[in-house]
Amino acid sequence: MDLGSLINALILGVSIASIWLIAALGLTIIYGTAGVINMAHGELIMLGAYSSYMLQFYLGLPYLLCLPVSFVIVALVGLALERGLIRYLYNRPLDTLLATYGVSLVLMQGVRLIFGSDPKYLAVPEIFQSNVMIGSVSLSVFRIVVLLVTALLVLALWLLFYKTRFGVQVRAVMQDKEMAASFGINSSRIYMLTFALGAGLAGVAGALFGVLAIVLPTMGASYVVQAFLMVVVGGGSLAGSVVASGVTGELQSVFAFFTNDTFARFIIFVLIVAFLRFRPQGLFAQAGARR
């Protein structure tokens, strides 16, 4: 083992971290704000990928435009889901988990009925398909795009939560719903909007994952557990998810360098369980949040 290949592993780790983070972003918002355990998050990611596929196939939209449009489409789906189901379950967190699992079954099978179970592919601009050398590691340009989009979204979310009136309201509802309500904040509306926002973020993640992997009705299932762990390790805050994804992405890459991908994932799972045993509130517990 030499230092050079370890540095390669670290560079790859940044890319892995960005993938994990973007999968977890929407969940962070939803879990962090409303405490909803959204098992349908993976299927929202899948819907994002299929939205992009439809936009490309039927409307011929260029790939980069698919990202924001997928955001809007999946956010609308999230909005409908929140209004129709989730809002009745806010005081029953375990039931949100079960009900959203039902939703994930429905979405998965619904998409399979409409599009069939054969894989679909997303076309990307020529330039994204090439590779670049960073140091001595060859990284596909698309992975750098994922990294950039993730960074952009994190920045946008930070601005939204810490620099706008809406953000203040969200954080107030997060800390104490009743108190916020008595100051005239419509908490039901805040929950609705954050759920839609979280779903929309899953849509963007899906549009990106549709290129990294093939588009299948079952593609979402593989992301949901991982995304949850990032959110829980992070403690439900934006910064927490960023750090959690960063650390686990790097560790995954380094362990995979010494052993292999699957075994590295096993070590990560065990480490996360051990970590949460000693710090159940996660890396950055939100000040004044419930629990």
């Binding site: 189901l85 009745y88 699992y101 039902g102 994930s104 079954l105 998965m108 099978q109 399979r112």
Partner: peptide
Amino acid sequence: LATWLLILGGFFIVVVR
């Protein structure tokens, strides 16, 4: 065959709700 998961998922949502 095609709609079984759809029915199960929907039924499950209704029961939980």
